[in-house]
Lab assay of single mutants.
Amino acid sequence: TTITITINGEELRIRGDHEEIHKILKAWEEDHNDEEIVRLIRELAER
């Protein structure tokens, strides 16, 4: 699965399995701050 998210003008492409993507979207849905979401995404992007 690949998704693209733009946060603060920075486009981040994430490839991951369903569970990893779900974790990010769940954090977003629960209204975590952008920095935390960006950190989760970067961790995935670095793999």
Rank of each mutant, 00 (worst) to 15 (best):
Thr6Leu: 12
Asp17Ala: 11
Ala27Gly: 08
Ala45Asn: 13
Gly16Pro: 02
Ile14His: 01
Ala45Val: 12
Thr6Lys: 13
Ile14Thr: 01
Leu12Ile: 13
Lys23Gly: 08
Gly16Trp: 05
Leu25Arg: 14
Ile5Gly: 00
Thr2Asn: 06
Thr2Leu: 14
Ile7Tyr: 02
Ile41Ser: 01
Glu11Phe: 07
His22Thr: 13
Glu20Ile: 12
Asp31Asn: 15
Thr4Lys: 08
Ile37Trp: 04
Arg47Lys: 14
Asn33Gly: 10
Leu12Phe: 14
Ile21Glu: 00
Ala27Cys: 09
Ile41Pro: 00
His18Glu: 11
Thr1Val: 15
Leu40Ala: 12
His18Gly: 06
Asp34Ala: 15
Ala45Gln: 09
Thr4Ala: 07
Arg15Ser: 15
Asp31Ala: 11
Arg42Glu: 07
Thr6Cys: 14
Thr1Glu: 14
Lys23Ser: 06
Ile41Val: 06
Ala45Phe: 05
Glu35Asp: 11
His22Gln: 09
Thr6Ile: 15
Leu40Gly: 02
Glu30Met: 07
Ile41Asp: 00
Ala45Lys: 05
Arg13Val: 15
Gly9Trp: 03
Trp28Phe: 13
His32Pro: 15
Arg39Trp: 01
Leu44Met: 11
Ile5Pro: 00
Ile14Gln: 00
Lys23Asn: 11
Arg47Val: 09
Arg39Tyr: 01
Glu46Phe: 03
Asn33Cys: 10
Asp31Pro: 04
Asp31Glu: 09
Thr4Cys: 08
Ile37Val: 12
Glu30Gln: 10
Thr6Trp: 08
Glu19Asn: 11
Lys26Pro: 01
His22Lys: 13
Arg42Asn: 08
Lys23Met: 07
Glu29Phe: 13
His32Asp: 08
Glu29Met: 13
Ile3Tyr: 01
Ala27Tyr: 09
Glu36Gly: 07
Thr1Cys: 12
Ile5Val: 10
Ile21Asp: 00
Arg13Trp: 13
Ile24Val: 04
Ile24Gly: 01
Arg39Ser: 08
Ile14Val: 07
Glu46Val: 10
Ala45Ile: 15
Glu19Ser: 10
Lys26Gln: 13
Thr4Phe: 05
Glu19Trp: 07
Glu10Leu: 10
Ala45Tyr: 04
Ala45Gly: 05
Ile7Val: 12
Thr2Gly: 05
Leu25Glu: 02
Ile5Phe: 02
Glu36His: 14
Trp28Met: 11
Asn33Gln: 08
Ala45Glu: 06
Leu44Glu: 02
Thr2His: 15
His18Met: 12
Arg47Met: 11
Arg47Pro: 06
Glu36Arg: 11
Ala45Cys: 07
Thr6Arg: 13
Glu36Pro: 03
Glu46Thr: 09
Arg42His: 06
Ile5Ser: 00
Glu29Gln: 11
Asn33Asp: 12
Val38Trp: 04
Ile24Arg: 02
Ile3Met: 05
Leu40Met: 09
Glu30Ser: 11
Leu25Phe: 04
Arg47Gly: 09
Glu20Ser: 14
Asp34His: 06
Asp17Ile: 06
Leu44Tyr: 04
Glu43Phe: 03
Leu25His: 03
Val38His: 10
Ile21Phe: 04
Arg13Thr: 15
Asn8Asp: 12
Ile7Thr: 01
Ile41Lys: 00
Ile14Gly: 01
Trp28His: 03
Ile21Arg: 01
Arg42Asp: 03
Gly16Val: 07
Ile7Phe: 05
Thr6Met: 14
Asn8His: 08
Thr2Lys: 05
Arg15Cys: 12
Lys26Met: 12
Glu29Cys: 07
Ile37Tyr: 07
Arg42Tyr: 05
Leu25Lys: 08
Ala27Pro: 01
Glu20Gly: 06
Ile21Trp: 06
Glu30Ile: 08
Ile24Tyr: 02
Leu40Pro: 00
Asn33Thr: 13
Ala27Ser: 12
Val38Lys: 13
Glu20Trp: 12
Asp17Leu: 10
Glu35Gly: 08
Ile24Phe: 04
Glu43Val: 05
Asp34Met: 15
Leu12Arg: 04
Ile3Gln: 03
Asn33His: 14
Ile7Arg: 02
Asp17Asn: 12
Arg42Pro: 01
Glu35Asn: 11
Arg13Gly: 04
Gly9His: 04
Asn8Phe: 07
Asp34Gly: 12
Ile14Met: 04
Arg47Cys: 06
Glu35Ser: 12
Ile5Ala: 01
Ile37Thr: 10
Glu35Ile: 11
Glu19Phe: 09
Thr4His: 08
Ile24Thr: 02
Glu35Gln: 10
Ile21Val: 12
Gly9Asn: 08
Ile21Gly: 01
Asn33Leu: 15
Leu12Trp: 06
Arg42Ala: 07
Arg39Thr: 04
Glu30Thr: 13
Val38Cys: 04
Trp28Leu: 14
Glu36Phe: 12
Arg15Thr: 15
Glu20Tyr: 12
His22Asn: 14
His18Ala: 13
Ile37Asp: 00
Leu44His: 03
Glu36Tyr: 12
Glu35Thr: 09
Arg39Gly: 06
Lys23Phe: 04
Thr1Asn: 12
Asp34Lys: 13
His32Gly: 13
Gly16Glu: 03
Asp34Phe: 15
Glu43Gly: 07
Ile21Thr: 03
Ile3Lys: 05
Leu25Trp: 02
Asp34Val: 14
His22Val: 08
Leu40Lys: 15
Glu11Leu: 12
Glu46Arg: 07
Thr1Arg: 08
Asp31Arg: 15
Gly16Arg: 02
Glu46Lys: 10
Glu11Trp: 04
Gly16Thr: 07
Asn8Ile: 02
Ile3Gly: 02
Ile37Cys: 03
Trp28Arg: 01
His18Phe: 12
Thr4Tyr: 05
Leu25Ala: 05
Ile24Cys: 02
Ile14Pro: 01
Glu43Asp: 08
Leu40Glu: 04
Glu19Leu: 08
Ala27His: 09
Thr2Ile: 12
Lys26Trp: 04
Glu30Arg: 08
Lys23Glu: 09
Gly9Tyr: 03
Arg15Gln: 15
Thr1Met: 13
Leu40Thr: 08
Ile5Trp: 00
His18Tyr: 15
Arg15Trp: 15
Lys23Leu: 10
His22Ile: 09
Arg15Ile: 15
Ile5Gln: 00
Glu29His: 08
Ile21Met: 13
Arg47Asp: 05
Asp34Gln: 09
Glu10Arg: 07
Lys23Cys: 02
Ala45Asp: 05
Glu36Gln: 10
Thr4Trp: 03
Ala27Trp: 10
Asn8Leu: 08
Leu44Ala: 04
Thr4Ser: 11
Glu43His: 07
Arg47Phe: 03
Val38Arg: 07
His18Val: 10
Lys23Tyr: 03
Asp34Thr: 10
Thr4Asn: 05
Glu46Gln: 08
Arg42Met: 10
Glu10Cys: 14
Asn8Lys: 06
Gly16Gln: 03
Ile14Asp: 00
Ile14Ser: 01
Ile3Leu: 05
Arg15Pro: 08
Lys26Asn: 12
Arg47Leu: 10
Ala27Lys: 14
Arg13Asp: 05
Leu40Cys: 08
Trp28Ile: 07
Arg15Val: 15
Ile41Cys: 02
Thr4Glu: 04
Asp34Arg: 11
Ile7Met: 06
Glu29Pro: 01
Leu40Arg: 14
Gly9Asp: 05
Val38Tyr: 04
Ile24Trp: 03
Glu30Gly: 08
Ile5Leu: 04
Ile14Leu: 12
Val38Pro: 05
Gly9Ala: 03
Asp34Cys: 14
Ile3Asn: 02
Arg47Ile: 14
Thr2Tyr: 12
Val38Asn: 06
Lys26Phe: 05
Lys23Ile: 07
Ala45Thr: 08
Ile41Asn: 00
Thr4Leu: 09
Ile5Tyr: 00
Leu25Tyr: 04
Thr2Val: 10
Glu10Val: 13
Glu19Ile: 11
Asn8Ala: 08
Arg42Trp: 03
Glu35Val: 14
Arg42Gly: 06
Ile7Trp: 04
Ile7Gln: 01
Lys26Asp: 10
Arg15His: 15
Glu35His: 06
Arg39Pro: 00
Leu44Asp: 01
Arg39Glu: 07
Arg42Ile: 14
Glu43Pro: 00
Glu36Thr: 09
Glu29Asn: 06
Glu30Phe: 06
Thr1Phe: 09
Leu44Cys: 02
Glu30Asp: 10
Lys23Ala: 11
Leu12Asn: 02
Ala45Arg: 05
Glu30Pro: 06
Glu29Ile: 11
Ile37Lys: 03
Ile7Cys: 06
Asn33Arg: 05
His22Leu: 13
Leu12Gly: 00
Trp28Asn: 01
Ile41Tyr: 00
Ile5Cys: 02
Ala27Glu: 07
Glu35Tyr: 06
Arg42Cys: 11
Gly16Phe: 05
Arg39Lys: 10
Leu40Val: 11
Ile24Glu: 00
Gly16Ser: 07
Glu10Met: 05
Val38Thr: 08
Glu46His: 05
Ile24Ser: 01
Leu40His: 06
Ala27Asn: 06
His32Ser: 11
His22Trp: 05
Glu30His: 08
Glu30Asn: 12
His32Arg: 12
Leu40Gln: 14
Lys23His: 08
Gly16Leu: 07
Ile14Cys: 03
Asn33Ser: 11
Ile14Phe: 05
Glu20Asn: 06
Ile5His: 00
Glu30Tyr: 08
Lys23Arg: 12
Glu46Pro: 02
Thr2Arg: 05
Arg39Ile: 05
Glu19Pro: 10
Ile21Ser: 01
Ile7Asp: 00
Thr1Tyr: 08
Asn33Val: 15
Leu12Met: 09
Lys23Val: 06
Ile7His: 02
Ala27Val: 07
Ala27Met: 15
Ala27Leu: 15
Ile7Lys: 01
Ile41Gly: 01
Glu11Gly: 04
Glu10Asn: 09
Arg15Asn: 14
Ala27Arg: 14
Leu44Val: 04
Ile41Arg: 00
Glu29Asp: 09
Glu36Ile: 11
Arg47Gln: 14
Leu12Thr: 04
Arg15Ala: 15
Glu36Lys: 10
Asp34Leu: 15
Asp34Trp: 15
Leu40Ile: 14
Leu40Ser: 07
Lys23Asp: 11
Arg13Leu: 10
Ala27Asp: 05
Leu25Gln: 06
Leu12Ser: 02
Ile37Pro: 00
Trp28Ala: 02
Thr2Phe: 13
Glu35Phe: 06
Glu46Trp: 03
Glu36Asn: 15
Asp31Tyr: 09
Asn33Met: 15
Asp31Leu: 11
Asp34Ile: 15
Leu25Pro: 00
Leu25Met: 09
Ile41Met: 04
Lys26His: 13
Thr6Val: 15
Ile14Glu: 00
Thr6Tyr: 08
Asp34Glu: 11
Glu10Lys: 13
